[in-house]
Design a protein around this nucleic acid. Structure first.
Lengths: 111, 111
DNA sequence: TTGTTATGACGTATTTTTGCGTCATAATTT
DNA sequence: AAATTATGACGCAAAAATACGTCATAACAA
Protein backbone atom coordinates (compact mmCIF):
# COMPACT_ATOMS: atom_id res chain seq x y z
CA UNK A 1 0.00 0.00 0.00
CA UNK A 2 1.07 3.46 -0.59
CA UNK A 3 2.99 4.58 2.46
CA UNK A 4 3.73 2.06 5.15
CA UNK A 5 0.57 2.69 7.05
CA UNK A 6 -0.19 -0.97 7.60
CA UNK A 7 2.29 -0.86 10.45
CA UNK A 8 -0.26 1.14 12.35
CA UNK A 9 -2.59 -1.85 12.53
CA UNK A 10 -2.24 -4.71 14.97
CA UNK A 11 0.02 -7.51 13.84
CA UNK A 12 -2.89 -9.90 14.16
CA UNK A 13 -5.08 -7.94 11.81
CA UNK A 14 -2.27 -7.59 9.31
CA UNK A 15 -1.64 -11.31 9.40
CA UNK A 16 -5.30 -12.09 9.02
CA UNK A 17 -5.56 -9.70 6.09
CA UNK A 18 -2.53 -11.28 4.47
CA UNK A 19 -4.20 -14.68 4.39
CA UNK A 20 -7.38 -13.27 2.94
CA UNK A 21 -5.28 -11.55 0.31
CA UNK A 22 -3.68 -14.84 -0.66
CA UNK A 23 -7.17 -16.04 -1.52
CA UNK A 24 -8.24 -12.86 -3.26
CA UNK A 25 -7.48 -13.96 -6.80
CA UNK A 26 -9.44 -16.57 -8.78
CA UNK A 27 -6.23 -18.01 -10.18
CA UNK A 28 -4.97 -18.78 -6.70
CA UNK A 29 -8.30 -20.29 -5.68
CA UNK A 30 -8.16 -22.39 -8.83
CA UNK A 31 -4.68 -23.56 -8.01
CA UNK A 32 -5.74 -24.62 -4.53
CA UNK A 33 -8.73 -26.52 -5.89
CA UNK A 34 -6.59 -28.20 -8.49
CA UNK A 35 -4.06 -29.26 -5.89
CA UNK A 36 -6.88 -30.63 -3.75
CA UNK A 37 -8.21 -32.66 -6.65
CA UNK A 38 -4.98 -34.09 -7.92
CA UNK A 39 -3.45 -34.24 -4.46
CA UNK A 40 -0.06 -33.62 -5.97
CA UNK A 41 1.30 -32.10 -9.13
CA UNK A 42 3.85 -29.91 -10.76
CA UNK A 43 3.84 -26.35 -11.95
CA UNK A 44 3.70 -27.07 -15.64
CA UNK A 45 0.57 -29.15 -15.21
CA UNK A 46 -1.19 -26.32 -13.44
CA UNK A 47 -0.36 -23.81 -16.13
CA UNK A 48 -2.07 -26.11 -18.63
CA UNK A 49 -5.21 -26.05 -16.51
CA UNK A 50 -5.37 -22.29 -16.23
CA UNK A 51 -5.85 -19.48 -18.73
CA UNK A 52 -2.48 -18.11 -17.71
CA UNK A 53 1.12 -18.52 -18.75
CA UNK A 54 3.50 -20.74 -16.85
CA UNK A 55 5.38 -17.72 -15.58
CA UNK A 56 2.28 -16.14 -14.15
CA UNK A 57 1.10 -19.35 -12.55
CA UNK A 58 4.53 -19.66 -11.03
CA UNK A 59 4.12 -16.30 -9.39
CA UNK A 60 0.77 -17.21 -7.90
CA UNK A 61 2.32 -20.42 -6.61
CA UNK A 62 5.07 -18.36 -5.04
CA UNK A 63 2.54 -16.17 -3.26
CA UNK A 64 0.65 -19.16 -1.92
CA UNK A 65 3.92 -20.64 -0.79
CA UNK A 66 4.92 -17.44 0.97
CA UNK A 67 1.87 -17.47 3.21
CA UNK A 68 2.40 -21.18 3.75
CA UNK A 69 -0.81 -22.50 2.23
CA UNK A 70 1.12 -24.76 -0.10
CA UNK A 71 4.47 -26.49 0.03
CA UNK A 72 6.81 -27.20 -2.84
CA UNK A 73 9.30 -30.03 -2.76
CA UNK A 74 11.91 -30.36 -5.45
CA UNK A 75 11.95 -33.73 -7.13
CA UNK A 76 14.65 -33.96 -9.69
CA UNK A 77 13.89 -31.49 -12.44
CA UNK A 78 10.35 -31.03 -11.29
CA UNK A 79 8.87 -29.42 -8.25
CA UNK A 80 6.05 -31.07 -6.41
CA UNK A 81 3.51 -28.62 -5.08
CA UNK A 82 1.07 -29.72 -2.39
CA UNK A 83 -1.47 -28.19 -0.10
CA UNK A 84 -0.35 -27.58 3.45
CA UNK A 85 -3.45 -29.02 5.06
CA UNK A 86 -2.46 -27.89 8.53
CA UNK A 87 -2.00 -24.31 7.41
CA UNK A 88 -5.34 -24.43 5.65
CA UNK A 89 -7.02 -25.73 8.77
CA UNK A 90 -5.40 -23.03 10.87
CA UNK A 91 -6.50 -20.36 8.45
CA UNK A 92 -10.01 -21.74 8.39
CA UNK A 93 -10.14 -21.58 12.17
CA UNK A 94 -8.96 -18.02 12.41
CA UNK A 95 -11.19 -16.91 9.57
CA UNK A 96 -14.22 -18.49 11.20
CA UNK A 97 -13.28 -16.96 14.51
CA UNK A 98 -12.96 -13.53 12.94
CA UNK A 99 -16.27 -13.79 11.12
CA UNK A 100 -17.97 -15.25 14.17
CA UNK A 101 -17.05 -12.21 16.22
CA UNK A 102 -18.82 -10.06 13.68
CA UNK A 103 -22.04 -11.94 14.14
CA UNK A 104 -23.78 -9.70 16.58
CA UNK A 105 -27.46 -10.18 17.29
CA UNK A 106 -28.56 -6.65 17.87
CA UNK A 107 -28.29 -4.13 15.15
CA UNK A 108 -29.22 -0.57 15.82
CA UNK A 109 -29.32 0.53 12.25
CA UNK A 110 -32.28 2.69 11.43
CA UNK A 111 -34.28 1.75 8.40
CA UNK B 1 -5.64 -7.66 -12.94
CA UNK B 2 -3.78 -6.72 -16.00
CA UNK B 3 -5.83 -7.75 -18.99
CA UNK B 4 -9.34 -9.04 -18.52
CA UNK B 5 -8.27 -12.59 -17.90
CA UNK B 6 -10.45 -13.00 -14.86
CA UNK B 7 -13.32 -13.62 -17.25
CA UNK B 8 -11.73 -16.94 -18.02
CA UNK B 9 -12.43 -18.17 -14.52
CA UNK B 10 -15.78 -19.47 -13.34
CA UNK B 11 -18.15 -16.81 -12.05
CA UNK B 12 -18.26 -18.63 -8.74
CA UNK B 13 -14.53 -18.47 -8.24
CA UNK B 14 -14.44 -14.82 -9.20
CA UNK B 15 -17.19 -14.06 -6.73
CA UNK B 16 -15.49 -16.01 -4.00
CA UNK B 17 -12.23 -14.21 -4.69
CA UNK B 18 -13.98 -10.88 -4.60
CA UNK B 19 -15.17 -11.49 -1.05
CA UNK B 20 -11.75 -12.57 0.09
CA UNK B 21 -10.35 -9.43 -1.48
CA UNK B 22 -12.77 -7.31 0.48
CA UNK B 23 -11.19 -8.72 3.62
CA UNK B 24 -7.64 -8.46 2.39
CA UNK B 25 -6.81 -5.13 4.00
CA UNK B 26 -6.35 -4.53 7.73
CA UNK B 27 -8.23 -1.27 7.52
CA UNK B 28 -11.31 -3.04 6.25
CA UNK B 29 -11.03 -5.74 8.89
CA UNK B 30 -10.72 -2.99 11.47
CA UNK B 31 -13.80 -1.29 10.16
CA UNK B 32 -15.81 -4.49 10.39
CA UNK B 33 -14.65 -5.10 13.95
CA UNK B 34 -15.46 -1.56 14.92
CA UNK B 35 -18.94 -1.83 13.45
CA UNK B 36 -19.45 -5.09 15.34
CA UNK B 37 -18.43 -3.46 18.60
CA UNK B 38 -20.42 -0.26 18.33
CA UNK B 39 -23.22 -1.93 16.42
CA UNK B 40 -23.89 1.31 14.60
CA UNK B 41 -21.94 4.41 13.76
CA UNK B 42 -21.05 6.99 11.20
CA UNK B 43 -18.12 7.44 8.90
CA UNK B 44 -16.49 10.28 10.75
CA UNK B 45 -16.33 8.22 13.91
CA UNK B 46 -14.52 5.42 12.15
CA UNK B 47 -11.90 7.70 10.68
CA UNK B 48 -11.08 8.80 14.22
CA UNK B 49 -10.49 5.20 15.20
CA UNK B 50 -8.14 4.44 12.35
CA UNK B 51 -4.71 5.72 11.32
CA UNK B 52 -6.23 6.89 8.06
CA UNK B 53 -7.85 9.99 6.72
CA UNK B 54 -11.60 10.32 6.46
CA UNK B 55 -11.40 10.15 2.67
CA UNK B 56 -9.49 6.91 2.73
CA UNK B 57 -11.79 5.35 5.28
CA UNK B 58 -14.67 6.39 3.10
CA UNK B 59 -13.20 4.47 0.21
CA UNK B 60 -12.78 1.34 2.26
CA UNK B 61 -16.37 1.69 3.41
CA UNK B 62 -17.41 1.98 -0.20
CA UNK B 63 -15.62 -1.25 -1.07
CA UNK B 64 -17.22 -3.11 1.80
CA UNK B 65 -20.57 -1.74 0.74
CA UNK B 66 -20.02 -2.83 -2.85
CA UNK B 67 -19.62 -6.48 -1.88
CA UNK B 68 -22.55 -6.11 0.47
CA UNK B 69 -20.81 -6.82 3.75
CA UNK B 70 -22.04 -3.55 5.19
CA UNK B 71 -25.03 -1.33 4.61
CA UNK B 72 -25.20 2.42 4.81
CA UNK B 73 -28.38 4.27 5.56
CA UNK B 74 -28.55 8.01 5.26
CA UNK B 75 -29.84 9.73 8.35
CA UNK B 76 -30.04 13.42 7.85
CA UNK B 77 -26.57 14.77 7.35
CA UNK B 78 -24.99 11.59 8.60
CA UNK B 79 -24.79 8.13 7.16
CA UNK B 80 -25.31 5.14 9.37
CA UNK B 81 -23.07 2.24 8.49
CA UNK B 82 -23.93 -1.22 9.76
CA UNK B 83 -22.83 -4.78 9.26
CA UNK B 84 -24.98 -6.84 6.97
CA UNK B 85 -25.10 -9.87 9.24
CA UNK B 86 -26.80 -12.02 6.64
CA UNK B 87 -24.15 -11.29 4.04
CA UNK B 88 -21.45 -12.04 6.59
CA UNK B 89 -23.09 -15.35 7.44
CA UNK B 90 -23.39 -16.23 3.79
CA UNK B 91 -19.76 -15.40 3.17
CA UNK B 92 -18.72 -17.41 6.19
CA UNK B 93 -20.60 -20.41 4.84
CA UNK B 94 -19.12 -20.24 1.39
CA UNK B 95 -15.63 -19.61 2.74
CA UNK B 96 -15.90 -22.60 5.06
CA UNK B 97 -17.25 -24.69 2.24
CA UNK B 98 -14.39 -23.70 -0.02
CA UNK B 99 -11.75 -24.39 2.61
CA UNK B 100 -13.44 -27.62 3.62
CA UNK B 101 -13.15 -28.95 0.09
CA UNK B 102 -9.42 -28.36 0.27
CA UNK B 103 -9.12 -30.55 3.32
CA UNK B 104 -8.13 -33.78 1.74
CA UNK B 105 -6.84 -36.58 3.89
CA UNK B 106 -4.33 -38.16 1.62
CA UNK B 107 -1.39 -36.19 0.43
CA UNK B 108 0.99 -37.74 -2.02
CA UNK B 109 3.72 -35.21 -1.59
CA UNK B 110 7.14 -36.72 -1.35
CA UNK B 111 9.30 -35.60 1.49
C1' DT C 1 -30.80 33.38 4.93
C1' DT C 2 -26.16 32.35 6.29
C1' DG C 3 -23.07 29.38 8.47
C1' DT C 4 -21.67 24.90 9.77
C1' DT C 5 -21.27 19.89 9.15
C1' DA C 6 -21.05 15.38 7.25
C1' DT C 7 -20.37 13.04 3.15
C1' DG C 8 -19.55 11.52 -1.44
C1' DA C 9 -17.44 12.48 -5.93
C1' DC C 10 -13.19 13.60 -8.38
C1' DG C 11 -8.60 13.84 -9.45
C1' DT C 12 -3.81 12.51 -8.51
C1' DA C 13 0.53 10.54 -6.84
C1' DT C 14 2.54 6.17 -5.23
C1' DT C 15 2.77 1.43 -4.55
C1' DT C 16 1.32 -3.14 -5.63
C1' DT C 17 -0.39 -6.60 -8.27
C1' DT C 18 -0.77 -9.02 -12.65
C1' DG C 19 0.80 -11.19 -16.66
C1' DC C 20 4.52 -12.45 -19.54
C1' DG C 21 8.78 -12.94 -22.16
C1' DT C 22 13.58 -14.08 -21.78
C1' DC C 23 17.56 -16.15 -19.48
C1' DA C 24 20.24 -18.96 -16.58
C1' DT C 25 20.57 -23.20 -14.20
C1' DA C 26 20.12 -27.91 -12.77
C1' DA C 27 18.58 -32.59 -13.78
C1' DT C 28 17.46 -35.97 -17.58
C1' DT C 29 17.92 -38.12 -21.95
C1' DT C 30 20.07 -39.66 -25.85
C1' DA D 1 29.11 -34.58 -23.90
C1' DA D 2 25.19 -32.39 -26.26
C1' DA D 3 20.30 -31.80 -26.48
C1' DT D 4 16.11 -31.43 -23.86
C1' DT D 5 13.21 -30.16 -20.00
C1' DA D 6 11.38 -27.98 -15.94
C1' DT D 7 11.84 -24.21 -13.11
C1' DG D 8 12.98 -20.00 -10.85
C1' DA D 9 14.92 -15.33 -11.21
C1' DC D 10 14.71 -10.84 -13.52
C1' DG D 11 12.85 -7.14 -15.69
C1' DC D 12 8.95 -4.65 -17.85
C1' DA D 13 4.47 -2.77 -19.05
C1' DA D 14 -0.25 -2.22 -17.87
C1' DA D 15 -3.83 -2.16 -14.56
C1' DA D 16 -5.49 -1.93 -9.70
C1' DA D 17 -5.25 -0.65 -5.10
C1' DT D 18 -4.01 2.89 -1.59
C1' DA D 19 -4.04 7.25 0.59
C1' DC D 20 -5.33 11.98 0.40
C1' DG D 21 -6.61 16.73 -0.64
C1' DT D 22 -10.15 19.60 -2.53
C1' DC D 23 -14.88 20.56 -3.99
C1' DA D 24 -19.72 20.38 -4.34
C1' DT D 25 -23.90 19.30 -2.13
C1' DA D 26 -27.51 18.33 1.12
C1' DA D 27 -29.27 18.77 5.85
C1' DC D 28 -29.26 21.51 10.11
C1' DA D 29 -28.64 25.18 13.33
C1' DA D 30 -28.48 29.89 14.49
Amino acid sequence: MAKLIKNSFSADLVRQAKFFKALSHPARLSILQYLAETKTCITGDIADELPLSRTTVNQHLKELKEVGLIVGTVEGVKTNYCLNTQAIKDFKSSAISFLEDLNIDTINCKK
